[in-house]
Amino acid sequence: MSARISLGSAGAIAWLVLIYLFVLGPAAVVIIGSFNTATSFPSDFEGFTFGWYAQLGEHPEFLDALFVSIQIGAIAAFVGSVIGIPVALALARYDFRFKGMITAFIMAPLILPQIVLGMAMLQLLTALQLPATFLGLALIHAVFVMPYVVRAMLSCLTGLSPSVSEAAASLGANAWQRFLLITLPITRAGIMAGFIFAFIMSFINLPLSLFLTTPTSTTLPIRMFAYMESQIDPFIAAVGSLTVIAVIAGSFFIEKILKVRLLA
């Protein structure tokens, strides 16, 4: 009996090892490759260097793109939060007609092909005879990240009984006071988590921006995409590794410090 159990768990462990290798392998290869002294891929690991990270200083266009991505991510996450937090409150607190349909509508950007979203925004700008702009880029990113804010906030609110806010009402707090003094402080972790997660989702996104970039507003993924068209080398691996590390740090912060489960 015990032999069979250990046989079963050995099989389980072997399976998990293979799955983890398969899922994490590509990102690991990028990180390992970023320390390779070779000048282009494919190549064996020829030697260890930090040099490719230092190279970043010689590519101002990547630093500019990083700056644009940070701005876009911050604006999108902010707009998404300002609009998405009330949505989560409404969904968590109230029952209303067409609730299912309205929820599906608000969550729709999650399942719509992002390339179509980006293209549609381009068409709106064209119809308005506006050039592709920073604003259009930020707006479509905000549309896209809002559902993540709603989801993070909802996961916080479901644990919070509506009677807590009602108790405040019975004690004389009006709607604003209830929001500012009760709901907001209690759900602070969810709000921060939603903001960070929304930022990450905007930061790593490429297809949304593909048709909306201008020479002055090129996001980091677009810059990487363009570079990768011509060559694959340890430098681009270094850029990729930096984004991975930043994103991993952000998500660890959400899960372990804020203790908001985004993935469950």
Partner: peptide, 11 residues
């Protein structure tokens, strides 16, 4: 979370 770009670079 890392996004498809880095993953595809790996592949």
């Amino acid at each position: 979370l890392a996004g498809p770009l880095v993953v595809v670079l790996g592949w």
